[in-house]
Write a protein that binds this DNA or RNA. Structure first.
Lengths: 205, 205
DNA sequence: CCAAAAAGTCAATGAGCGTTGACATAGCCG
DNA sequence: CGGCTATGTCAACGCTCATTGACTTTTTGG
């Protein structure tokens, strides 16, 4: 059956021994798998397999699954991109990304999928509260600025994540006209959140 | 240790034999557990335990875990509540619910948590696309009416789910002022989606 | 060139869980 | 009362997976 593997694998040079590189490879594979499958469904053997090493190294380098998860989570949020977000086109850009292909910004997509999966797994959700505060909400809150920044940041995060989930469920790509309407709506929401004082504020009492 | 159980349990009458009631009890327990933990983390033995029966009955009545899940999912979306939603106060009511305690409308909360967990589990997500279309998006789309109803329904669902996730992660309750701002923002978004033609539509080109 | 340590692999263990068939008991019908 | 069937329980099997310790191979330093 998988004789193919047994034959093909050795072709690739048998991998220079390099602790740092191996550690990094495991961490990368872990980030991808955890983002794709979540903590519970991700399998250490597969992560190690993707990294091209044996499972036992996960223990040696990270200590265990949970520790690996935490490190991957922190690494995923280490480089936070709010700094380079473009204030003017932000709403439209983000909405477009959320409406369509994740290929435009795979890094950002993977980070947020990681967050989403971590948030919705009952195993890992408890670990998130603090980290989300520090590395996710705080930067957004700071980037947004203005009045009621915390509430706006939370709504922002909610809409963002929600769109992600919606796209996750939606199998087919969004059609032309509907897609435009979708983007317009979401862009409008983001724009309103970025522009601090809602001019046409009409909250039902 | 759990002698307590052994002593206390028998106090409750030893359960009249009633296939329908038992089936219903299992289904109820399943709905709760699946909503709380998702498909992957929910454990049949616990579900059966909550229902007060043995695991084997799950097989007899439903065939297996996946079949039970599907039935629970359909049952959860069987009674769809869009009919009774109040159009005028909908935005504010829903935002208030999402901002705070789930105790106000536990049924609805459980239904949506079920949906959320099902959508974010890689195991069950593929099963959802069609069901979500039929029983979730379609009713909302119909309830919303007007132009670009599909896109608006999707955005609506996204925001709703997103707020749910946000609340899931947020440990502490939302403070007074922030809470008001949060509710106002979310209510505004919903209201704009309900009111079909966005009067002050200012999408960045 | 050679040992010692670092880097990597292998196989076994044990826990958790879905599944399954044999067994027990209550309710019903003759 | 006596057997039959629906209902419910029990114990065991098999699988997946994280963990772990013993083993092998590469690299390094003298």
């Amino acid at each position: 059956m998988n004789d193919i593997d047994l034959i093909v694998r050795p072709q690739t040079a048998p991998r220079k021994r390099d602790a740092d590189a191996t550690r990094a490879a495991i961490l990368d594979a872990a980030k991808a798998q955890f983002a794709l499958l979540g903590y519970d469904c991700a399998v250490l053997r597969d992560i190690a397999g993707d990294a091209g090493v044996d499972v036992a190294l996960v223990k040696r380098y990270f200590g265990g699954k949970e520790a690996l998860f935490l490190e991957a989570l922190k690494a995923s949020f280490g480089t936070d991109g709010t700094k380079e977000w473009d204030r003017a086109n932000f709403g439209h850009d983000t909405a477009t990304m959320l409406a369509g292909s994740p290929h435009r910004n795979p890094d950002r997509t993977q980070r947020f999928q990681f967050l989403l999966r971590a948030a919705t797994s009952p195993t890992t959700a408890p670990l998130l509260s603090q980290l989300v505060q520090e590395r996710f909400l705080a930067p957004i809150r700071h980037w947004l600025g203005g009045t009621a920044a915390d509430a706006r940041a939370r709504v922002f995060a909610a809409v963002y994540i929600g769109c992600l989930v919606e796209r996750l469920v939606r199998g087919d790509a969004l059609g032309g006209a509907e897609r435009q309407a979708y983007i317009a709506r979401v862009a409008g929401i983001f724009a309103a959140l970025v522009a601090d004082p809602p001019e046409a504020k009409e909250t039902t009492a």
